[in-house]
Amino acid sequence: MNPAGYSEQVRRAWAIAKKDIRIYYIKGPVLIFGIFMPVFLFLAFLMGSRQLPLAFLVSGLVGMTLFFTATAVSPAIFPWEGQAKTLERLASCPIMVEAIVLGDMIASTLFGIGITLITVVIGLALGLSLIHGITLLAAILLAACCFSAIGMLLAVPPTNVPSNIMMLSSLLKFPLVFISGIFVPLEQMPPWGLALAFCSPLTYFADLVRYSFTGSHFFAVWVDIAALGFFMVIFTAGTMYLHKRTMPKRM
Protein backbone atom coordinates (compact mmCIF):
# COMPACT_ATOMS: atom_id res chain seq x y z
CA MET A 1 0.00 0.00 0.00
CA ASN A 2 1.30 3.42 -0.95
CA PRO A 3 -0.47 5.84 1.41
CA ALA A 4 0.14 8.76 -0.94
CA GLY A 5 -1.05 6.90 -4.08
CA TYR A 6 -4.23 7.93 -5.86
CA SER A 7 -6.27 4.80 -5.16
CA GLU A 8 -5.48 4.90 -1.46
CA GLN A 9 -6.27 8.62 -1.24
CA VAL A 10 -9.58 8.10 -3.03
CA ARG A 11 -10.42 5.36 -0.53
CA ARG A 12 -9.67 7.77 2.31
CA ALA A 13 -11.79 10.44 0.59
CA TRP A 14 -14.66 7.96 0.75
CA ALA A 15 -14.13 7.71 4.52
CA ILE A 16 -14.50 11.50 4.70
CA ALA A 17 -17.68 11.31 2.63
CA LYS A 18 -19.19 8.68 4.92
CA LYS A 19 -18.34 10.82 7.93
CA ASP A 20 -19.97 13.88 6.31
CA ILE A 21 -23.12 12.00 5.44
CA ARG A 22 -23.39 10.70 8.99
CA ILE A 23 -22.71 13.98 10.70
CA TYR A 24 -24.06 16.66 8.38
CA TYR A 25 -26.58 15.14 5.98
CA ILE A 26 -28.60 12.47 7.77
CA LYS A 27 -30.17 15.04 10.06
CA GLY A 28 -33.88 15.72 10.17
CA PRO A 29 -33.68 19.46 9.54
CA VAL A 30 -31.20 19.10 6.69
CA LEU A 31 -33.29 16.47 4.94
CA ILE A 32 -36.48 18.45 5.44
CA PHE A 33 -34.84 21.61 4.17
CA GLY A 34 -33.48 19.70 1.19
CA ILE A 35 -36.92 18.45 0.19
CA PHE A 36 -39.17 21.31 1.17
CA MET A 37 -37.26 24.32 0.00
CA PRO A 38 -37.46 23.50 -3.73
CA VAL A 39 -41.05 22.34 -3.35
CA PHE A 40 -42.12 25.62 -1.80
CA LEU A 41 -40.14 27.68 -4.29
CA PHE A 42 -41.86 25.74 -6.99
CA LEU A 43 -45.33 26.24 -5.54
CA ALA A 44 -44.77 29.97 -5.22
CA PHE A 45 -43.61 30.00 -8.76
CA LEU A 46 -46.51 27.89 -10.03
CA MET A 47 -49.03 30.35 -8.60
CA GLY A 48 -47.21 33.34 -9.99
CA SER A 49 -46.93 32.19 -13.58
CA ARG A 50 -49.83 30.07 -14.63
CA GLN A 51 -49.18 30.53 -18.32
CA LEU A 52 -46.02 28.39 -18.31
CA PRO A 53 -46.39 24.66 -19.00
CA LEU A 54 -45.96 22.15 -16.19
CA ALA A 55 -43.04 20.45 -17.97
CA PHE A 56 -41.11 23.71 -17.95
CA LEU A 57 -41.84 24.23 -14.28
CA VAL A 58 -40.82 20.74 -13.26
CA SER A 59 -37.59 21.10 -15.22
CA GLY A 60 -36.88 24.26 -13.32
CA LEU A 61 -37.77 22.58 -10.06
CA VAL A 62 -35.39 19.69 -10.70
CA GLY A 63 -32.65 22.15 -11.66
CA MET A 64 -33.14 24.21 -8.50
CA THR A 65 -33.38 21.18 -6.27
CA LEU A 66 -30.11 19.76 -7.44
CA PHE A 67 -28.37 23.10 -7.32
CA PHE A 68 -29.56 24.03 -3.84
CA THR A 69 -29.11 20.61 -2.26
CA ALA A 70 -25.65 19.99 -3.71
CA THR A 71 -24.48 23.38 -2.44
CA ALA A 72 -26.50 23.52 0.79
CA VAL A 73 -24.23 22.02 3.40
CA SER A 74 -20.74 21.72 1.94
CA PRO A 75 -19.71 25.40 2.17
CA ALA A 76 -20.14 25.24 5.95
CA ILE A 77 -18.28 22.01 6.62
CA PHE A 78 -14.78 23.48 6.74
CA PRO A 79 -15.80 26.42 8.97
CA TRP A 80 -17.64 24.03 11.30
CA GLU A 81 -14.76 21.65 11.51
CA GLY A 82 -12.28 24.47 11.87
CA GLN A 83 -14.24 25.73 14.84
CA ALA A 84 -14.58 22.28 16.39
CA LYS A 85 -10.86 21.62 15.75
CA THR A 86 -11.70 18.37 14.01
CA LEU A 87 -10.10 19.89 10.93
CA GLU A 88 -6.81 19.89 12.82
CA ARG A 89 -7.23 16.18 13.34
CA LEU A 90 -7.78 15.63 9.61
CA ALA A 91 -4.74 17.81 8.90
CA SER A 92 -2.57 15.53 11.01
CA CYS A 93 -3.89 12.38 9.29
CA PRO A 94 -2.24 10.95 6.18
CA ILE A 95 -4.81 12.38 3.79
CA MET A 96 -4.18 15.13 1.25
CA VAL A 97 -6.25 18.32 1.24
CA GLU A 98 -7.44 17.35 -2.24
CA ALA A 99 -8.80 14.07 -0.88
CA ILE A 100 -10.62 15.84 1.96
CA VAL A 101 -12.21 18.18 -0.59
CA LEU A 102 -13.07 15.21 -2.79
CA GLY A 103 -14.73 13.49 0.18
CA ASP A 104 -16.84 16.55 0.93
CA MET A 105 -17.78 16.73 -2.76
CA ILE A 106 -18.79 13.07 -2.88
CA ALA A 107 -21.07 13.54 0.13
CA SER A 108 -22.82 16.59 -1.32
CA THR A 109 -23.08 14.91 -4.73
CA LEU A 110 -24.84 11.91 -3.21
CA PHE A 111 -27.13 14.11 -1.13
CA GLY A 112 -28.00 16.22 -4.19
CA ILE A 113 -28.72 13.18 -6.33
CA GLY A 114 -30.86 11.54 -3.64
CA ILE A 115 -33.10 14.54 -3.06
CA THR A 116 -33.30 15.35 -6.78
CA LEU A 117 -34.51 11.86 -7.61
CA ILE A 118 -37.34 12.47 -5.15
CA THR A 119 -38.32 15.61 -7.08
CA VAL A 120 -38.21 13.68 -10.34
CA VAL A 121 -40.56 11.13 -8.84
CA ILE A 122 -42.88 13.97 -7.76
CA GLY A 123 -42.81 15.25 -11.33
CA LEU A 124 -43.70 11.82 -12.67
CA ALA A 125 -46.48 11.53 -10.09
CA LEU A 126 -47.88 14.84 -11.37
CA GLY A 127 -48.36 13.12 -14.69
CA LEU A 128 -45.26 14.18 -16.60
CA SER A 129 -43.73 11.64 -18.90
CA LEU A 130 -40.03 11.09 -19.00
CA ILE A 131 -38.84 10.93 -22.59
CA HIS A 132 -35.07 10.62 -22.20
CA GLY A 133 -34.40 8.83 -18.92
CA ILE A 134 -30.73 8.02 -19.56
CA THR A 135 -29.98 11.60 -20.52
CA LEU A 136 -31.66 12.79 -17.33
CA LEU A 137 -29.65 10.41 -15.18
CA ALA A 138 -26.37 11.36 -16.87
CA ALA A 139 -27.25 15.03 -16.54
CA ILE A 140 -28.07 14.70 -12.84
CA LEU A 141 -24.83 12.83 -12.17
CA LEU A 142 -22.64 15.29 -14.03
CA ALA A 143 -24.40 18.36 -12.69
CA ALA A 144 -24.33 17.04 -9.12
CA CYS A 145 -20.53 16.76 -9.34
CA CYS A 146 -20.31 20.20 -10.88
CA PHE A 147 -22.57 21.84 -8.27
CA SER A 148 -20.84 20.16 -5.36
CA ALA A 149 -17.57 21.64 -6.66
CA ILE A 150 -19.31 25.04 -6.64
CA GLY A 151 -20.37 24.36 -3.06
CA MET A 152 -16.76 23.73 -2.09
CA LEU A 153 -15.61 26.82 -4.01
CA LEU A 154 -17.95 28.87 -1.83
CA ALA A 155 -16.07 27.48 1.19
CA VAL A 156 -12.70 28.78 0.05
CA PRO A 157 -12.55 31.99 2.13
CA PRO A 158 -10.73 30.70 5.23
CA THR A 159 -13.16 31.81 7.89
CA ASN A 160 -14.16 29.60 10.79
CA VAL A 161 -17.49 31.35 11.23
CA PRO A 162 -20.12 29.22 9.46
CA SER A 163 -22.73 32.00 9.28
CA ASN A 164 -20.37 34.26 7.29
CA ILE A 165 -19.94 31.60 4.68
CA MET A 166 -23.65 30.79 4.54
CA MET A 167 -24.39 34.47 3.99
CA LEU A 168 -21.84 34.75 1.23
CA SER A 169 -22.99 31.59 -0.47
CA SER A 170 -26.65 32.67 -0.49
CA LEU A 171 -25.53 35.96 -1.95
CA LEU A 172 -23.92 34.11 -4.84
CA LYS A 173 -26.36 31.24 -5.26
CA PHE A 174 -29.63 33.11 -5.74
CA PRO A 175 -28.43 35.37 -8.57
CA LEU A 176 -27.07 32.30 -10.31
CA VAL A 177 -30.55 30.75 -10.30
CA PHE A 178 -32.05 33.89 -11.81
CA ILE A 179 -29.70 34.00 -14.77
CA SER A 180 -30.04 30.32 -15.60
CA GLY A 181 -33.29 30.11 -17.56
CA ILE A 182 -35.21 28.57 -14.69
CA PHE A 183 -37.81 31.29 -14.20
CA VAL A 184 -37.69 32.70 -17.72
CA PRO A 185 -37.23 30.39 -20.73
CA LEU A 186 -33.98 31.07 -22.57
CA GLU A 187 -35.98 31.75 -25.74
CA GLN A 188 -37.63 34.75 -24.07
CA MET A 189 -34.45 36.26 -22.70
CA PRO A 190 -32.91 39.47 -23.98
CA PRO A 191 -29.39 39.12 -25.49
CA TRP A 192 -27.64 40.34 -22.32
CA GLY A 193 -29.63 37.85 -20.29
CA LEU A 194 -28.56 35.07 -22.63
CA ALA A 195 -24.95 36.16 -22.36
CA LEU A 196 -25.22 35.83 -18.58
CA ALA A 197 -27.00 32.49 -18.87
CA PHE A 198 -24.12 31.08 -20.92
CA CYS A 199 -21.84 31.60 -17.91
CA SER A 200 -23.96 29.55 -15.53
CA PRO A 201 -23.64 25.76 -15.43
CA LEU A 202 -27.19 25.59 -14.12
CA THR A 203 -28.41 26.82 -17.55
CA TYR A 204 -27.07 23.73 -19.28
CA PHE A 205 -28.44 21.40 -16.66
CA ALA A 206 -31.91 22.96 -16.80
CA ASP A 207 -31.78 22.68 -20.57
CA LEU A 208 -30.95 18.97 -20.35
CA VAL A 209 -33.72 18.33 -17.85
CA ARG A 210 -36.19 20.14 -20.07
CA TYR A 211 -35.04 18.04 -22.99
CA SER A 212 -35.52 14.88 -20.94
CA PHE A 213 -39.12 15.78 -20.08
CA THR A 214 -40.33 17.60 -23.21
CA GLY A 215 -37.93 16.71 -25.99
CA SER A 216 -37.27 20.38 -26.75
CA HIS A 217 -34.02 22.10 -26.01
CA PHE A 218 -32.15 25.34 -26.53
CA PHE A 219 -28.62 23.97 -26.92
CA ALA A 220 -27.64 20.70 -28.56
CA VAL A 221 -27.45 17.89 -26.00
CA TRP A 222 -23.72 17.42 -26.52
CA VAL A 223 -23.15 21.14 -25.98
CA ASP A 224 -24.97 20.93 -22.65
CA ILE A 225 -22.99 17.88 -21.57
CA ALA A 226 -19.67 19.29 -22.73
CA ALA A 227 -20.38 22.57 -20.94
CA LEU A 228 -21.28 20.81 -17.69
CA GLY A 229 -18.18 18.62 -17.96
CA PHE A 230 -16.04 21.67 -18.63
CA PHE A 231 -17.42 23.55 -15.62
CA MET A 232 -17.03 20.48 -13.45
CA VAL A 233 -13.35 20.02 -14.31
CA ILE A 234 -12.54 23.71 -13.91
CA PHE A 235 -14.40 24.10 -10.63
CA THR A 236 -13.03 20.86 -9.15
CA ALA A 237 -9.45 21.70 -10.05
CA GLY A 238 -9.94 25.26 -8.86
CA THR A 239 -11.47 24.34 -5.52
CA MET A 240 -8.78 21.75 -4.78
CA TYR A 241 -6.00 24.17 -5.65
CA LEU A 242 -7.48 26.99 -3.58
CA HIS A 243 -8.24 24.83 -0.55
CA LYS A 244 -4.71 23.49 -0.55
CA ARG A 245 -3.52 27.08 -0.26
CA THR A 246 -5.98 28.30 2.35
CA MET A 247 -6.10 25.22 4.59
CA PRO A 248 -3.18 26.28 6.87
CA LYS A 249 -4.98 29.59 7.52
CA ARG A 250 -7.86 27.72 9.15
CA MET A 251 -5.69 26.10 11.82
Partner: peptide, 23 residues
Amino acid sequence: ETSNAYTDLTAWQNLMLMGDLYG
Protein backbone atom coordinates in the same frame (compact mmCIF):
# COMPACT_ATOMS: atom_id res chain seq x y z
CA GLU B 1 -3.73 20.28 22.56
CA THR B 2 -7.49 20.66 22.17
CA SER B 3 -9.53 17.52 22.13
CA ASN B 4 -10.99 16.97 18.69
CA ALA B 5 -12.98 13.82 18.27
CA TYR B 6 -16.19 14.21 16.29
CA THR B 7 -18.74 14.85 19.02
CA ASP B 8 -21.65 13.80 16.78
CA LEU B 9 -20.13 10.36 16.31
CA THR B 10 -19.76 7.59 18.85
CA ALA B 11 -16.35 6.57 20.16
CA TRP B 12 -16.51 3.50 17.99
CA GLN B 13 -17.36 5.49 14.85
CA ASN B 14 -14.50 7.90 15.57
CA LEU B 15 -12.09 5.00 15.83
CA MET B 16 -13.36 3.39 12.63
CA LEU B 17 -12.96 6.73 10.84
CA MET B 18 -9.34 6.83 11.99
CA GLY B 19 -8.83 3.29 10.75
CA ASP B 20 -10.16 4.27 7.33
CA LEU B 21 -8.07 7.45 7.19
CA TYR B 22 -4.92 5.45 7.91
CA GLY B 23 -5.87 2.72 5.45
